[in-house]
Simulated assay, not measured.
Amino acid sequence: MITTKDLTKVYTSRGRQVSALRGVDLHVREGEVYGVVGTSGAGKSTLIRCVNMLERPTSGTVTVDGVELTALRGSEHRAGRELREARRRIGMVFQHFNLLSSRTVQENVELPLEITGLDRTGRRRKAAELLELVGLGGKARAYPGQLSGGQKQRVGIARALAGDPKVLLSDEATSALDPETTRSILELLRTLNQELGLTVLLITHEMDVIKSVCDSAALMRDGRIVEAGTLTDLLADDSSQLARELFPLGDLGDPGAGRPDGTVLEITFQGDTSTQPFISQLARTYQVDINILGAAVETIGGRQVGRMRVQLPGGHQDNVVPIGYLREQGLQVDVVTETGANTDSTTGVVA
């Protein structure tokens, strides 16, 4: 649904060139919620503004819903007719709401419909439907100054949906909100994604946003995407930096703790496997004493995900069969350390 290829953006300031994007390749599938996360200055906002051509890239291509936007005529200051038409299929939600204080809630939602030339009756009907959709049916005549931050953002979302877009872009839409309101806005975005079939691309600096609502994610650093994939694939990759930040392994106890000798395993389980009593089954089947060093379970991307550190007696060779049994149950099993053996402390691989 959204694809960028070798996307670059270079700004010139006082004769000095600054690269905000450095060859960004991004692919967002139709119907998913995709999050781009990174620290301030990573290039996230520039990327999302290039996707809807509020910023024209220096080079590279942007394709949305089969239309290559970078091939359409227009500039950052004046868009051509084809580019304006393409933009109407892309909704945008901003961090600071961007509502007109002199207009009522309903009039703010009607604004993009006025621009498209829809008649007054049609505008009112459409705005009323959208306000009901975002849970503000009773606030149509209120002004932005009478609303809470979360309500203002709901108005912004309703306005973004006025053109019946297939894609919704969210530029740090929850960063100015308190945690409870953030959760409600993220739940609304997920509901809209599911009920309207919207493809949602959001940028954020908050890992909890990625954890709670996204299907896929990318990590940006210094204008580049350094890691990307579905959350399921990332969590199954023990080398993934995103997975480590989504589910910090340090919370699971010290891998060096436990008995003096033994093999420490890190077990990752997702979806249906998270409800299986695999530890007790392993202990009964192989009559092995298992020392649980730490465990945690969270809901990430709508799926239950867990990680556990356990210690089995003996070295790795003594535990080949139990480890194989765990993997046959659909679990990801990584050998963290083999206490007492010559082990690489960085990789956990027995030398």
Rank of each mutant, 00 (worst) to 15 (best):
M1L: 07
L7N: 02
T8A: 14
R16Q: 11
Q17I: 10
V18R: 09
S19C: 10
G23P: 05
G31F: 14
G31N: 05
V33Y: 03
T39A: 15
R49A: 03
L54C: 04
L54V: 08
P57N: 06
D65W: 12
A79V: 07
A79P: 02
G80Q: 03
E85S: 15
R89T: 12
F97D: 00
L100K: 13
Q106R: 12
D119H: 00
A128T: 07
L130R: 01
L133G: 01
K139Q: 15
A142V: 05
Y143D: 13
Q146N: 10
S148T: 09
G150V: 13
Q153K: 08
G156D: 04
A158M: 01
R159E: 03
L161F: 02
A162I: 00
D164Q: 08
K166F: 02
L168Y: 02
L177H: 08
T182M: 09
N193M: 05
V200P: 07
M207N: 00
S212A: 08
V213L: 10
C214N: 05
G223N: 09
R224G: 15
L231E: 03
D238Y: 11
E245I: 10
D251R: 12
P255H: 01
G256E: 15
G258C: 05
G262C: 02
T273Y: 08
L282H: 01
V288G: 03
Q304F: 13
Q317Y: 09
V321S: 05
R327C: 12
G330N: 13
V333A: 06
T337C: 14
